[in-house]
Amino acid sequence: MARKTSPTQRAVVTVAAWSIGFLIFLPILWTVILSFKSETDAIRTPLQVLSAPWTTASYAEVQARSNYGAHFMNSVIISVGSTVLALIVAIPAAWAMAFQPGRRTKDLLMWMLSTKMMPAVGVLIPIYLMFRDFGLLDTRIGLTVVMTLINLPIVVWMLYTYFREIPSEILEAARMDGASLGKEILYVLTPMAVPGIASTLLLNVILAWNEAFWTLQLTTSKAAPLTAFIASYSSPEGLFYAKLSAASTMAIAPILILGWFSQKQLVRGLTFGAVK
């Protein structure tokens, strides 16, 4: 730890870090700024945009034109629902892979991960047709199931790495103490893995909340979440920057706030096991 750094070095690194942070944050900041401008001011040059008067007109119009509340509820149901479903499947799966690995467990994990490398559009037609035939198009249940399946590999992987950190002797102690498999997972493994499970849950909610490909393809109105709500403002009628920005801000605000309050948990979860 005691590596020597000069004040200049520290200053350079600090400025660089803040600059990169600002660059990453800039699109969000700009979206928020544009959302408080009039439609005519929003398409001007950046300097003119900044000096233009502030207004909440776009928000009022977005509210009047679409039902934010319904989209918000859809987003909550789909992201939370798919995360809970994924955890129910993934906790026992990750338990088996971490504590009772077979010869092919590593291959199975790699195969699961490899499905994430396939472009989603490659399976669009079969999934669309299945959804049509089962009457799942534009339903929250259908979308929740698809989200569950899409994020399952990541959930299993994350939980697997957390579970691997738990000493197997503790689970063996539970077995000696007469705990059945279910009780062992419920009373011992899960409470010990709470930090890992919490960060997996958070990350998965964020991923599902922001997922746009499937939500746009498989919903039209009834089950449309906030991603579809944003997309409806980049319409063929032309670009309405201010309204699009207002819709985007409203869509990302809840998840941004959630992320802000849980950032400690997220960082701890994502670096879990890196330092003993």
Binding site: E172, A174, M176, D177
Partner: peptide, 17 residues
């Protein structure tokens, strides 16, 4: 293991933290 009527003390204690 739970039905053999035996109790075990592990090297790492294996307490539930």
């Amino acid at each position: 293991p739970g039905e053999r009527g035996l109790a075990m003390v592990f090297q790492s204690y294996a307490l539930y933290p």
